[in-house]
């Protein structure tokens, strides 16, 4: 689906493959996460000091969240949950620095939600056996089988579009606001000095990028945990 006008710009081509902003900004986020991880795990001490304390706090929060939502025996999921949370969170917040969030691209959000979908199915089959798992689709009455299947398939769609819709809404509204403020100052002064663009959008940036971005990354991670642990029980 090409979202012309509001879609990600094509930065350069590798051969005939177009590379969009989504991909390059994802590389940037990967780099940031990589450097942070290397710095955070260097010189670990038994008695943590300043920086190590912060890192341990992050790990603690993620471990606690996983245990509370997926149960004690599924605490091995914490690395995956943490990766999702950190990647989506950083992707959403990067709009603050003037980049286009990778999550404002349907390709990113749908691949994340399909990952969750595949995990849900695989671990559902693994823990209940193929028979037990497929029997779940015949409940509460066998008549509902087609509906249960459609309902199961609708989960990744709504999961992916929930994230995409929220983030792209922010991107579109901010783009239009900057355009409107630019033309407003120009007609006000007759000069192209966009002084209004400096302060006015800050409030909306805090709402759309910081608040909605962090909230949506949390919601995506929570729903992933609920879906996966739900399929395993």
């Amino acid at each position: 689906m090409g979202v012309e006008g509001f879609g990600p710009r094509i930065v350069f081509h590798i051969g005939s493959i177009p590379v969009t902003e989504t991909v390059t900004v994802t590389w940037l986020i990967m780099l940031v996460v990589l450097i942070f991880s290397i710095l955070a795990t260097r010189n670990l001490k038994r008695e943590p000091k300043s920086f190590q304390l912060v890192v341990e706090q992050i790990v603690d929060v993620i471990n606690g969240m996983t245990k509370q939502n997926m149960g004690e025996r599924n605490s091995g999921w914490a690395p995956f949950v943490g990766t999702l949370l950190i990647f989506i969170g950083l992707s959403n917040v990067i709009g603050l620095f003037g980049f286009r969030p990778p999550t404002a691209d349907l390709n990113t959000t749908m691949s994340l939600s399909i990952t969750t979908f595949v995990l849900t199915q695989v671990f559902g089959v693994k823990s209940k056996g193929l028979g037990g798992y497929s029997k779940g689709f015949l409940e509460p009455i066998p008549f509902l089988l087609p509906l249960n299947i459609i309902g199961e398939l609708a989960n990744p769609i709504s999961l992916g579009f929930r994230l995409f819709g929220n983030i792209v809404a922010g991107v579109i509204i901010m783009t239009l606001l900057y355009g409107a403020l630019g033309s407003f100052t120009e007609s006000l002064l007759g000069l192209a000095v966009p002084f209004l663009q400096a302060g006015v959008p800050a409030v909306l940036h805090i709402y759309f990028d910081l608040f909605a971005g962090l909230l949506q990354s949390f919601i995506f991670t929570m729903l992933t945990m609920v879906f996966v642990s739900g399929a395993m029980e």
Binding site: Q68, A154, I157, F161, R162, I219
Partner: peptide
């Protein structure tokens, strides 16, 4: 946490409309 998960699911039909 429960409120947010419930609200997120309640958003589904609005997201279908957006799709």
């Amino acid at each position: 946490r429960t409120m947010l998960v419930g609200q997120a699911v309640a958003q589904t039909s609005g997201i279908f409309a957006l799709v």
